[in-house]
């Protein structure tokens, strides 16, 4: 081999390492900035306290509660619709215009940016259906937003279930519905649940769509009809309204910890699931 090719090889490899470590370097830059500025400001009072600019208290408990509310309502709505839709696509649909239309809609929805979902939720759920700024408005908006993701992942999960189970069940005289509900869904359940968890990460991190639909009131929500401020909206409001770095960094660090925890659980779970080879 001529030596210049060898040198070129080394040069390109170095370049690859350099670029890749630039990406990693940026990650550690952000994380260290978050930890250095955020960690000293996280305290028990901060996590469990209420927030009120006038009383000078800067807790984030109401924001955490609102975030959990929105996550649960969104998952319930998008979970039911998403799994049913995926069952239809994976088990019932035949290639044809209906299936094509549905897939087109899903792909388009996946490409729409969250701010457009925010505008849609604002007009449709808040104004048209008169839900107002509320957890319900926000959850329905987010449910539409994560639907393509949940349907896509669930469909993959359903299709990964061994063909033989299905054929065996049908051969034993079970109906299609019975097979789907009692055999295929339970087999696919672990993967469906990990998909839901990933959706949780996305819901918790979403700001634009929630800002337009749930409002920015920083009190404990009383139910799904009350307005509220999620943690991510809270970070935005702190950044734009108060200029107080300590609490903003602390909230940001907590949110990042929450979402990355979810991602690590998902990764660990996926490894187990793949090892079992359902």
């Amino acid at each position: 081999m001529p030596s210049w090719r060898k040198y070129r090889d080394y040069a390109v490899k170095t370049l690859i390492w350099l670029f890749a470590s630039a990406a990693l370097g940026f990650l550690f830059w952000i994380l260290s900035d978050l930890v250095v500025n955020g960690l000293p400001n996280i305290s028990f009072d901060f996590i469990t306290g209420e927030y009120n600019e006038y009383k000078g208290i800067t807790g984030i408990a109401p924001m955490i509660v609102t975030t959990l509310w929105i996550i649960s309502v969104t998952l319930i709505v998008s979970g039911i619709i998403g799994v049913s839709a995926a069952v239809y696509l994976a088990e019932y649909s035949k290639p044809g215009p209906t299936a094509r239309l549905i897939r087109f809609a899903l792909e388009s929805l996946a490409g729409i940016p969250s701010i457009i979902y925010g505008l849609f939720g604002y007009v449709f759920f808040k104004n048209m259906l008169k839900l107002g700024f509320s957890i319900l408005s926000a959850s329905l908006t987010l449910a539409v937003m994560v639907l393509p993701f949940i349907i896509g992942s669930t469909e993959i999960a359903l299709r990964n279930v061994n063909r033989l189970y299905r054929d065996g069940s049908l051969a034993l005289g079970a109906t299609k519905l019975y097979t789907v509900v009692n055999l295929i869904l339970p087999c696919a359940a672990p993967r469906i649940i990990t998909a839901m968890l990933l959706a949780v990460g996305r819901i918790a991190g979403e700001t634009a769509a929630v800002y337009f639909t749930a409002g920015t009131v920083y009190r404990y929500p009383e139910g799904i009809m009350s307005s509220g401020r999620t943690l991510s909206v809270h970070i935005y409001m702190l950044a734009k309204e108060t200029g107080n770095r300590n609490e903003t960094y602390a909230s940001a660090l907590l949110l990042v910890i929450f979402i990355s925890l979810i991602h690590f659980i998902v990764n660990a779970a996926s490894r187990v699931i793949n090892a079992e080879k359902i």
Partner: peptide
């Protein structure tokens, strides 16, 4: 390295924005 990439994707956009604003 792979978990680091996951970590990068689990930072919400508003946090990126705040990091950008302050750093």
């Amino acid at each position: 390295i792979r978990p680091c990439v996951d970590l990068l994707s689990s930072i919400p956009s508003v946090v990126y924005g705040y990091f950008g604003l302050t750093v």
